[in-house]
Design a protein around this nucleic acid. Structure first.
Lengths: 233, 233
DNA sequence: CAGTGGTCTAGACCACACA
DNA sequence: GTGTGGTCTAGACCACTGC
């Protein structure tokens, strides 16, 4: 202990992590209870509790009332990614943001979309396409579908002035979201907007949100060449 | 309040969230201090503290000593991805896992790697290449670099028997990790191993870990066609 | 320097889940 | 029932940082 000899919850956490790593408490085994550990470390139970609570959040251990605390068999690591507004992401890079509306239509949902996000057969969908630029260079192509049957006020929004991305964040809350990343090859149309060549590999993010089981929106975001999504943890 | 009239930290958290959503405390504004809120809610400061600490972790608010707590201007959403062992990931899909060692060399770190993860000029690097299969179909090509100067026992490990991925998880702890995703086009060599065609778009994950500032390992993981990384939040 | 959040304590009661 | 984790309290001291 560096400053003073106070045991802090971080010390407890690190000590527990070491013991797990050194197989003092092997995977699957039952760890001592909070009271016992508090006595051993010479600190309050609340301190041990905080350390163990964080370890549980991180997926290192598994805690159950009465059953006690066990070391997880497979140490699943979690990486947290920030999902900001495109605008914020671009400005965060120190670049100037520009938005460009391409076009929109009101249509019945295509079958693949119905299946993918769980729409009703008669749901009307607002289909918007637009571009996001960083320092006037293409950054992201946004292919956005909004469930107009549920989000009625989307019919009256002016997406030539505000990006659907931003409009939705401000106007429509959601309870569940799914995001998925993949690589694909660029088609002719998007290649034009992104100033790239058809067939080039591109990074794609697809995002769906629901409000109490009702599908709100689906977006396919195609990033320009060289995009990279990074996080530390 | 449902059970009794005890205020729990969840109640505090929800109340704060409502107020932020209702713009009682607009984005960027300074919220009341913990003591003030504790008095208002009729609970202990620790209870308010826990509520606010969690909101800060979630990126909803920003806390600074002396400066106080502010509502974040852009509600940054966080998506949590699980980073399991390839083996666990494949078995989790209900497929049979198979590992294949390709080859390894001990070399000086190439410049790009030195720059990328912060190696010393004289560090020796163990360079391993291997494959992971799901139901005997190529799943992932692993291009792994291990800092043998720091992780000395890696020199004696038998990577034809155990994948570096698994070996590292069991043998070497880390304090910091970075993961990044991007899309690229497949080169000739990897195309052969992945049973794909050179030039095809592929999804790539790159992962670096450090133990107390010392670089431990860098891995470039190239996934077979159609791979998709998904999470709900 | 002084105010705000960060953390610890010691004790208490509660809720859940296993026996 | 009974033990374990979950949470709250009231008070205290500390550490960072803006003024």
């Amino acid at each position: 202990m560096l400053r003073g000899d106070k045991i802090r919850y971080r010390d407890v956490k690190n000590e527990i992590l070491s013991r797990i790593h050194d197989k003092v408490w092997p995977p699957g085994s039952l760890m001592p209870g909070e009271i016992e550990l508090a006595e051993e470390f010479g600190c309050a139970r609340a301190t041990v509790n905080r350390a163990m609570r964080e370890l549980a959040e991180e997926g290192i251990i598994d805690r159950k009332r009465k059953a006690g605390t066990r070391v997880n068999v497979s140490p699943v690591r979690h990486a947290k990614f920030e999902i900001p507004l495109v605008k914020v992401e671009i400005e965060g890079l120190g670049a100037t943001y520009r938005y460009a509306f391409i076009g929109q239509t009101l249509e019945r949902a295509p079958d693949w979309l119905r299946a993918r996000i769980g729409l009703e057969p008669d749901d009307e969908i607002l289909h918007i396409r637009c571009m996001h630029y960083a320092n006037n260079a293409p950054f992201q192509f946004e292919d956005r579908w909004i469930n107009a049957t549920v989000v009625d006020k989307a019919r009256k929004a002016d997406f030539s002035a505000i990006s659907p991305n931003e409009w939705l964040v401000n106007e429509v809350p959601f309870t569940d979201a799914e995001i998925s990343f993949c690589a694909s090859s660029l088609d002719q149309t998007m290649a034009r907007f992104l100033s790239m060549t058809a067939g080039e590999p591109v990074f794609i993010a697809e995002r769906t949100t629901w409000l109490n089981e009702q599908p709100i929106t689906f977006a396919q975001l195609t990033f320009a060449r060289g995009y990279r999504m990074t996080t530390r943890y």
